[in-house]
Simulated scan of single mutants.
Amino acid sequence: MSPKLDPIDRRILDELVADARLPIAELARRVGLSKTPVAARIRQMEEIGLITGYRAMISPIKLGLTHVTYVELRLSDTREAALKAFNTAVRAIPEVEECYMIAGGFDYLVKIRARDMADYRRIMAEELSALPHVHSSSSYVAMEAVVEHSVLPIE
């Protein structure tokens, strides 16, 4: 169930998404309220789980992680125990940026961020192929990021 957000809640979220380090006093000035009700609204959005945390956004490019590959993985076993074993193991691979269970012609779609093709090849051979119940894979190398949103539209 989606929480009911009024226009001020949406403005607060927009401002926090743009700069999560914005002082409450400045945030309050921008949304036209005093500090106390703004802080209460933020606390309420945190309590209901709408705001799940605050973090620094780090550029993978500046870290030299310029190689992005999407990997389709097919499992040999898709019973619950096998899925749980796979899920636990894939979470332990630091180069896995995203992993989704898919309804379709394969079981998981994994986004890998690596330094280069040689680094990806190592990750594929030593990490992904060794995951529990992996039967086969197909890799798709990204040539360019055309749209990359890390922010959801607030409507």
Rank of each mutant, 00 (worst) to 15 (best):
A125P: 04
M143W: 04
L75V: 02
P37V: 05
V90N: 13
L128E: 03
V17D: 10
R43S: 15
A28S: 01
E26F: 01
A130H: 13
A130R: 10
A56D: 13
S137G: 00
I51P: 04
L5A: 09
E98N: 14
A142R: 07
L50K: 04
P7W: 10
G104W: 00
P7M: 00
D19P: 15
P153I: 06
A130N: 14
V151H: 00
K4N: 12
D77H: 03
E80P: 12
S150W: 03
D9Q: 04
A25D: 13
P132I: 01
R41P: 01
S2F: 14
Y54F: 13
R115V: 13
I93W: 12
R10G: 00
S138A: 09
I93S: 02
A92N: 11
T78H: 00
M143R: 11
E26P: 10
E72S: 08
M57G: 15
A118E: 15
D19C: 03
G105Q: 05
E72Y: 07
S2M: 08
S137N: 03
G32M: 04
D19F: 03
V110Y: 11
G32E: 08
E47G: 04
S129N: 15
I123V: 05
D107G: 09
G49V: 01
E98C: 04
S139H: 06
R41C: 10
S138F: 09
A118L: 08
E47M: 05
V68L: 12
K84R: 11
S150M: 12
T69Y: 07
A92V: 04
K111G: 06
V141Y: 12
Y140D: 08
V31E: 05
R29V: 03
G32Y: 09
S138Q: 15
D77Q: 07
L152I: 05
S76W: 01
M117Y: 03
V31N: 04
P132E: 06
P153T: 14
H133I: 06
E97L: 11
E47T: 13
R11E: 06
I58V: 14
V90Y: 02
M57K: 13
A89I: 03
P23L: 07
K62P: 11
I112T: 10
T69D: 10
L16T: 14
K84F: 03
K111V: 14
H67N: 02
T88Y: 10
D107E: 14
N87V: 00
A28G: 01
A89V: 05
K35C: 05
G104T: 00
T36N: 01
T78P: 10
F106G: 05
D9V: 12
L13S: 04
A39R: 02
L13F: 07
S34H: 14
T52E: 11
I102S: 08
H135P: 07
A20P: 01
E15Y: 14
E46F: 12
K84A: 09
I112W: 09
V71E: 09
E72I: 03
I48Y: 06
A39M: 15
A81Y: 04
L75F: 04
S137Y: 08
A142T: 01
L33T: 05
G105W: 10
S34V: 14
K35G: 07
S150E: 14
L83N: 11
I42Q: 07
R91M: 04
C99A: 15
D119Q: 01
L65D: 07
